[in-house]
C-alpha cells in the first residue's frame, strides 16, 4: 500500500501542493450543477419544495410556469393533476440518487469482488467470470426489465436489482484487467514471499491500487444509471406511480406536449443537466486519475 502510493505520487511536489493544484483545476460548473440540481434538493427536499409533490388540486391543472404568465406559486407550472412540477422535481432527485447509489454500490461490490477473484486467481474462476460478463453485456438489460415487470411488477427493488445486474459486468471486466496487472507486480510478489495471505494481498495491496479506477468508473456510471432508470420509469416498468421519478414525469407529460410542454420538459432537463455534469466530472477525473480507462 505504501509503495503504491509512493509510486503514484512520486518524489515531486508535496501532498498539500498537489491537493491545492487539484482544487484549483476542479470543473466548477459541472460540480455546481450537480449540487444544485441533484444533491441539495435531495437532502433538503422538505424545506425547499413549496408544495406537496404527491397531491395537487384539480383546479390548478396544467398551469404554465410562473415566468410564462402562470400563477406565481408554481415556478415551473403544474401537471395534469395540478401538482407542482418544481416540487416534484425536487423530490424526484431523491429517487435518482437512491437508485444510482444503491445500484452502483451493489453492482459495483459484486463486480469488483468477482473481478478481483478472476484477475488474481485466474484459472476456472476467470473463465466463468469472463463468460458471464460477455453474456450479461450482450443481453440488453431493458429486455430483462420488461420481463421482470411483466412477471412480478415494477418496484424500487427490481429497478435497483436490474441496474446492479448490468453494472456488475462493467465493473468485473475492468477490475479483472487491473487485478491481472497488479497481481504480477513486484510488491505483490514480495508480499507473497513474506507470507501474506491471498485475502490480505488482495485487500491491502491490489485493492488500493485500483481505487482510482473504481472512482472514475463509478462516476461515469452515475449518468448511465440515471438515464437508464429514467427510461424504465418512462416505459412504466421502473419506479411506480405516483412517485415523482423524473422519467415518470416525462411520461406523464408526453400526451400533453401540445398543450402543456413544460410537464415533460423540465424533468427531462433535470436529467440532462445532471447527467451531462456527472459525465463531464467523470471525464475530468478519468484524465487525472486513470487516463488508460477504456472509453464506451
Amino acid at each position: 500500500m505504501r509503495e503504491a502510493q509512493a509510486s503514484a505520487v512520486g518524489a515531486g511536489p508535496t501532498r498539500a501542493r498537489l491537493a491545492w493544484r487539484w482544487l484549483r483545476e476542479l470543473p466548477l460548473l459541472p460540480i455546481a450543477i450537480i449540487l444544485v440540481v441533484l444533491v441539495i434538493p435531495a437532502i433538503f427536499a422538505e424545506y425547499l419544495a413549496p408544495h406537496n409533490p404527491y397531491s395537487g388540486s384539480l383546479r390548478a391543472r396544467l398551469q404554465p410556469p410562473a415566468f410564462l404568465g402562470g400563477p406565481s406559486e408554481f415556478l415551473l407550472g403544474t401537471d395534469h393533476q395540478g401538482r407542482d412540477i418544481f416540487s416534484r422535481i425536487i423530490f424526484g432527485s431523491r429517487i435518482s440518487i437512491a437508485v444510482a447509489g444503491a445500484g452502483i454500490l451493489i453492482g459495483g461490490s459484486i463486480g469488483t469482488t468477482l473481478g478481483l477473484i478472476a484477475g488474481y486467481f485466474r484459472g476456472v474462476a476467470e473463465t466463468i467470470v469472463t463468460r458471464l460478463v460477455d453474456l450479461t453485456l450482450s443481453i440488453p438489460a431493458i429486455l430483462v426489465a420488461l420481463v421482470v415487470a411483466a412477471a412480478i411488477g415494477a418496484r424500487f427493488t427490481t429497478v435497483v436489482a436490474i441496474v446492479a445486474l448490468v453494472l456488475w459486468a462493467v465493473y468485473a471486466r475492468q477490475v479483472r484487467a487491473e487485478a491481472l496487472k497488479w497481481a504480477q507486480s513486484d510488491f505483490v510478489a514480495r508480499a507473497r514471499v513474506a507470507g501474506a495471505s491471498h485475502f490480505r494481498i488482495i485487500v491491502r495491496h491490489i485493492l488500493p491500487n485500483i481505487a482510482n479506477t473504481l472512482i472514475v468508473l463509478s462516476t461515469l456510471q452515475v449518468g448511465f444509471v440515471i438515464v437508464f432508470e429514467g427510461s424504465l420509469s418512462f416505459l412504466g416498468v421502473g419506479i411506480p406511480r405516483p412517485n415523482p421519478a423524473w422519467g415518470l414525469m416525462v411520461a406523464d407529460g408526453r400526451i400533453h406536449v401540445v398543450s402543456a410542454w413544460w410537464i415533460a420538459f423540465f424533468p427531462g432537463l433535470a436529467i440532462m443537466l445532471t447527467v451531462l455534469s456527472v459525465n463531464m466530472l467523470g471525464d475530468w477525473l478519468r484524465d487525472r486519475l486513470d487516463p488508460k480507462l477504456t472509453q464506451v
Binding site: G223, V227, G230, S231, F234, L235, G247, V250, A251, A264, P267, G268, L269, I271, M272, V275, L276, N279
Partner: peptide
C-alpha cells in the same frame, strides 16, 4: 451520452 432518448 447525456441526453435521454425519451425526453429529446
Amino acid at each position: 451520452q447525456s441526453l435521454p432518448h425519451f425526453w429529446i
